[in-house]
Nucleic acid binder design. Structure first.
Lengths: 235, 235
DNA sequence: CGCCTGGTTGACCACTATCAAGGTTAGTGG
DNA sequence: CCACTAACCTTGATAGTGGTCAACCAGGCG
């Protein structure tokens, strides 16, 4: 087993939450792959021959309607698996938002790995369950929350992601554009801008650079995200 | 192995799609449980000690915000697994919309089954992947589709469900109320009513009974659901 | 330097939520 | 059997949130 092989299934960053950790896997064959920003790893409806494990960078998973409307299903960070699906074809496109490194593994090789190492399937099952759980939380965001609540939920989630990476959760780096955020939150980029400006004006966040947001009052942001009497505070 | 045990992992209805089929499992211990309409199988945040396999009836999975706003994550039918989660607690409540029968199995027993029968985990992984894929499709519905498109998508999905059960897909039985549909589609029940009335007026569907909808022009409904120039046809 | 992409803000308006009323059906008790 | 009640469904009038359209700004790059 080469060191590359090992790497696919080991923790690849500071801290990966247990549920998305594929540590238990051990002998699969993968290829380290680098992507520059705006690279497409694969397109929606392409045959799903490979899965990717993100080592570094941010990957954006999105779907399109025939008329061009776009929905971002997920932003993937170090430790996340991309492209694992039961179907023949990818159900979404995957684009690198930043320069990124992944380990790419053929799906059939993964199946072999599963046969050789049942614990591998266990850890992948846990990862998919966690992904499902996140998708269901996002259903609540898209179905029932208003614009401020959506943006607040997003900022809190990004902050928690930063914390998991060992960073300080009080500052959130946003590798994606306002359009990406809007397509993730089911809003327009204008509404995302306006809402962020509102939060800034009310002192809940500070925005020096568009891609760097400081959470000045995290507790209020959490109240806004979760429901909150306080959600009118930041209009 | 009792016949009850067998039953948990076998096809329990006319036709269950491969991806959600848990046929491969064979020796787990489950208990047949009956529920009357409006029964709650479990509440959001209860300890997730059991999973359920639906044999008959419709189960509604939903989440609440503190202020009472509700989002339905999924309607479960015969063959579906309910309550399978990586977390300690259920991430949603499960209510029976109709009288229903399930097989209930302790999570720890399922884990034992997995150890004894690795193929079991494989089939469960496929089921969870299918569920994830459905959730991601629903993200597009909630994030990017308007009212008519959402309702059309829902009717088509229910029709496909009926087809999988061996029924005629041209008539859709809706066991849920307008409020349930609204909470699933991120709309209000008034908007659901109005939209259905619009589709009825334009001749796309017929609604004799509120819970029985006939798809008179399935092709148009599909066009509306998918994007469509035609989506103005039914306002 | 000029173009292009991305971000921000404003004016206006449409879609859907909200509020309200009335209708229908099923279940319950007299 | 019928009256009463309570869900549930439907439709109408009004209002508000967020979308659309438009303009302008800032930064990066050819």
């Amino acid at each position: 087993m080469s060191s590359l092989d090992q790497k696919f299934f080991q923790d690849t960053n500071v801290a990966i939450p247990p549920a998305t950790d594929t540590l238990a896997l051990s002998t699969a064959v993968g290829t380290v792959t680098t992507h520059v920003a705006k690279d497409t790893l694969f397109w929606e409806a392409d045959p799903a021959d490979y899965i990717f494990k993100v080592l570094r960078g941010t990957i954006c998973l999105s779907k399109l309607l025939p008329d061009g409307r776009r929905q971002v299903a997920r932003f993937c960070h170090a430790g996340d698996l991309v492209g694992l699906t039961a179907s023949e074809d990818y159900p979404y496109s995957a684009d690198a938002l930043t320069d990124a490194t992944t380990i790419r593994i053929r799906k059939c090789d993964l199946d072999e790995e599963f046969d050789a190492n049942p614990a591998a399937r266990e850890s992948v099952l846990a990862a998919v369950q966690e992904e499902l759980s996140a998708a269901q939380r996002q259903l609540m965001v898209l179905g029932r929350k208003n614009a401020v609540e959506r943006v607040a939920s997003f900022l809190i989630a990004m902050s928690e992601q930063a914390l998991r990476q060992g960073e300080d959760g009080s500052v959130v780096e946003l590798p994606m554009t306002r359009v990406d955020i809007a397509d993730y939150l089911g809003l327009t980029h204008e509404t995302v801008c306006r809402t962020l400006s509102g939060l800034k004006k009310s002192g809940v966040v500070a925005i020096s650079d568009p891609h760097r947001i400081e959470l000045l009052q995290r507790d209020i942001l959490e109240d806004i995200a979760e429901d909150s009497e306080e959600r009118r505070c930041a209009a």
